[in-house]
Design a protein around this nucleic acid. Structure first.
Length: 216
DNA sequence: CCCGTGATTTAT
DNA sequence: TAAATCACGGGG
């Protein structure tokens, strides 16, 4: 009998169901907390690559200076942010990295949650092959660009549905959200340009989880 | 600390 | 059309 996962002290707490649309149609702060402990799953040639979400950030739409949707700027890159809750917004940045967001709220409400880190659970051998630079398993998915490289997530998934997707989707792994006392909160990473928005407590992560990014 | 790398955005 | 920027990661 192996050691029990940090995310599931008890198997009766776990499940493998697709979330409902309503799960995603919440504000990005609530969704950012609710996504912690849930699974992001990528299927490649019948093999599952998956990890539990351990770090997220909320982006608050047109008013949020750190968001790509600040000032309601709607462009070809960010248009999936206006889709329904549960849609993926995948973008390419710094000439080499992809990042994935989970759209929150409803159609025409451009709010989202950035997935910043996973604890790898399934398909680690393939993740290690996808992430040659990783020296240890805590380097596989401990950052938004790293996890997209590990799971081979790219622009083809921009605008895709994370509820009914076949190659990329979210599975409810925890039946209940983590209690607030197990979630640490901090300012978001990499948005120093955003004035007062740079200081807001919109980053959420599992306390003491070694797979969280080293950003802070 | 610095730099790669290229799409996107902003300035001229 | 040109320049600057970037929700990052890797290597000193």
């Amino acid at each position: 009998m192996g050691k029990l996962s940090d995310h599931a002290q008890d198997v009766s707490m776990t499940c493998t169901k697709r979330p409902s649309r309503q799960f995603f149609r919440r504000d990005p702060v609530t969704l950012g907390r609710a996504l912690l402990g849930q699974k992001l799953v990528r299927v490649i040639r019948g093999r599952r690559l998956a990890g539990t979400i351990v770090e997220t950030e909320a982006y608050l739409g047109a008013i949020d200076k750190a968001a790509h949707t600040y000032g309601d700027r709607r462009t070809d890159r960010n248009k999936s942010m206006w889709a329904d809750g549960g849609t993926a917004y995948v973008y390419f940045t710094y000439g080499m990295h992809h990042c994935i967001n989970v759209v929150a709220k409803r159609v025409e409400d451009p709010e989202a949650v950035l997935i910043r880190a996973l604890e790898p659970l399934e398909g680690l051998a393939i993740m290690r092959r996808n992430r040659r630079a990783a020296k240890q398993d805590t380097d596989l998915c401990s950052g938004p660009g790293k996890l997209c490289q590990a799971l081979a997530i790219n622009h083809q998934f921009d605008g895709s549905d994370l509820i009914n997707g076949q190659q990329l989707f979210i599975e409810l792994f925890r039946r209940r959200a983590y209690p607030a006392r197990q979630i640490a909160v901090s300012p978001r990473i990499g948005i120093a340009y955003a004035g007062r928005w740079a200081h807001k407590p919109l980053r959420f992560f599992l306390t003491q989880n070694p797979h969280v990014s080293k950003g802070s």
